[in-house]
């Protein structure tokens, strides 16, 4: 196992340009995740259209002072494309009778919430349970990149298969499980260490990252384990590196968005929503969300166990599947 690991390190060292660039990209991706998420404001954006010489009505000025909304006062109605791109969640105009009129492309629930904020500003408290905190956001953004890195770094394993080196390894005395775990250890370390260092550097610079560093170490470890296992699992089925690579990155992009790693998509308890819980990313996000809000329950703990168990299952399938293809019985 150690031999494979060391050999992979030497192979990587032999391509210094590749090493440097992939490390830079990794650092860029993680820093972008931290940079973006620490600056996210999740207030509702409202455009208040007040033409010249018009005095703000009472409810409008109350809305301006409302801490839950980000109100921009405009002279003209904003363009529809800004609404489509969610620059503004709603536009409030005053019609000829002096009443407020709300234009929005969002659903009725949002409109009623805004109406209640306009009519009763004092008693208005929005539902904040869906809003995520910094740590969850950072890890959610990082997740997709870490998983993709796994597939990309599995290329030494893919190269072994593509160039039929693996046939020679199969007849060598090294046990197959150790060979695959050696590749696994290599991928795990090359994903986990640089990303943890970036997070550590951010913490040292005094940026609020949500969790403490040991917790981050554990969580990044789980993510890196999942990434490694998935990459080896996928590569064990294909002999061509391109296929595994492109299929892997499309699966990862699709499932990460589905699991709501950037922002929560579905809220109702539909059948589809339950199915999404099969995705390890969803369970991971739920777990860290509960962890950050301090509302851990037995079921959220099981969700983390599920992620780890799935990773172990992927690894086991990778070992069995590769052995089936290359070891003669």
């Amino acid at each position: 196992m150690l031999v494979v690991f060391k050999n992979n390190c030497k192979r990587l060292w032999g391509e210094k340009m590749y090493l440097v660039i992939s490390l830079i990209l990794m650092i860029a991706a993680v820093s972008a995740a931290i940079l973006l998420t620490t600056r996210i404001e999740t207030k509702g954006n409202i455009a208040l259209v007040v033409p010249d010489q018009q005095v703000l009505s009472e409810s409008d000025s109350a809305l301006l002072a409302n801490p839950y909304f980000n109100v921009t006062v405009l002279e003209k109605t904003p363009e529809t494309s800004t609404l489509v791109q969610s620059r503004y969640d709603a536009v409030i105009t005053t019609n000829s009778d002096g009443n407020d009129e709300i234009t929005t492309i969002k659903n009725m629930a949002f409109k009623t919430m805004l109406e209640s904020a306009l009519t009763n500003p004092a008693g208005f408290v929005p539902d904040n349970s869906q809003v995520r905190q910094t740590g969850t956001n950072i890890l959610g953004f990082m997740m997709m990149f870490l998983l993709m890195q796994g597939v990309l770094y599995a290329r030494f394993f893919a190269e072994d298969k593509e160039k039929h080196l693996i046939k020679r390894i199969a007849v060598s005395p090294i046990p197959f499980i150790q060979y695959i775990l050696g590749h696994g250890a290599f991928i795990f370390i090359i994903i986990a260490v640089p990303s943890f260092l970036v997070v550590g550097a951010a913490a040292l610079m005094g940026i609020d990252i949500g969790f403490s560093l040991p917790v981050y170490a554990g969580l990044i470890g789980v993510l890196a384990l999942l990434a490694t296992a998935f990459a080896l699992f996928l590569n064990s089925f294909f002999d061509v590196a391109d296929t595994a690579n492109m299929l892997g990155s499309s699966i990862i992009v699709l499932t990460s968005i589905l699991a709501g790693s950037f922002c929560s998509l579905s809220k109702e308890a539909t059948l589809f929503d339950k199915l999404i819980h099969l995705l390890p990313q969803k369970d991971f996000i739920n777990f860290i969300d509960a962890l950050e809000k301090g509302s851990l329950s037995q079921s959220t703990r099981y969700q983390l166990v599920y992620v780890v168990a799935l990773a172990v299952l992927f690894l086991a399938i990778a070992v069995v599947n590769t052995r089936k293809d290359y070891v003669y019985h």
Partner: peptide, 17 residues
Amino acid sequence: NIFAILGGLLFPMDGYG
């Protein structure tokens, strides 16, 4: 993917401040 996320292709980005 960084460009896609930054550019709001995968989810709208404009409302985040």
